[in-house]
Design a protein around this nucleic acid. Sequence first.
DNA 1: AAAATCATGTAATTTGTTACATGATTAG
DNA 2: CTAATCATGTAACAAATTACATGATTTT
Lengths: 181, 181
Amino acid sequence: MALAHAIMTALIDDDLSGYELAKDFEASLGFFWHASHQQIYQELHKLADRQWLNKREVSQSGKPNKIVYGLTGAGRKALARWVYDKTRTQAAKDELLIKLYNLSTENARHLAAEIAERRQQMMRTLYLYEKVRLRHYADPASLPVRHKGVYLALLAGMGQGEQFLAWCDEALELLAAVDSA
Amino acid sequence: MALAHAIMTALIDDDLSGYELAKDFEASLGFFWHASHQQIYQELHKLADRQWLNKREVSQSGKPNKIVYGLTGAGRKALARWVYDKTRTQAAKDELLIKLYNLSTENARHLAAEIAERRQQMMRTLYLYEKVRLRHYADPASLPVRHKGVYLALLAGMGQGEQFLAWCDEALELLAAVDSA
DNA sequence: AAAATCATGTAATTTGTTACATGATTAG
DNA sequence: CTAATCATGTAACAAATTACATGATTTT
């Protein structure tokens, strides 16, 4: 049920098409929730059937028509109620850390390369988040209430990201020592 | 395919029963991977069929018999190869952060309570990890290679956990201001 | 001409969760 | 006698991934 509510959350301020939602899930919202376009399209159909979303077709010049979805009154109510539902504790899953349990002199270099690549990726993501923060959340105290929540989520993502970078450095140092031994 | 390899990883040093594995997945390994006992039992059957694990029944006094699984040579090889497979980028999923996107004066108190509860949970987890660290990883430089990897995973978990605590404090402060406004 | 982006979908499979089921032993 | 722990499973359902599919437009 959570993907449904993540999608509705993305639609609070703007009406979006499935394609646009999929891109959002890759970018901003994607730090906290991931979904493929296939999943999104199926969920959109279900949500429209349930009357939590309405749809309208928008013709564009030079591009295929798109189907834009928006929250209905019922959808907004369902979303507001969902906040009080029991939060399912997230299932932690990170293959890379499991792989580290299998560290050997043989694979140390490979794992170091993987960590270095992830570090790069995280740097790029953090750069984007920092831009968003400066543009929209530079003065958190003056934000409207709901946006303070978004700001907190952003802080969580940035904090985790920065912590990850620090860990990568430590890991790479230790792995270099293993590899040269 | 990743649950299979997480299970095999848990069996590198010790042979374990499904029940024991399920507990491990709740505790130490569970920081990085989660699995229910139902999933574990099914995966164990598959792995045994594939000859990556062997099983033997152990009778216990005063307790039901247990079926203990151990890695075969083929299993160890498969695990070693897996380290070089493409690591699937983890799907970030945290309902709580999505809920924060829906912050309002009405639900601020509820969300603060949820965050406070998570903070407590994380404190307990970190306490356990700190005990493990002191007991087994107090002197990382002198660890055997493979255990250095486990140590790095532990560091990642602890770093993320501590970062989460700091974030909780910041979030609770901001939410208190929202609630009293 | 080829590749990338825009746009939407179906089908098959795998993975994960929830509910149901059993039965013994131990601690309060 | 009640609850908790030990121990293993099946079945139904929901969620997610992978593969397949189409077709227009824009950029290189």
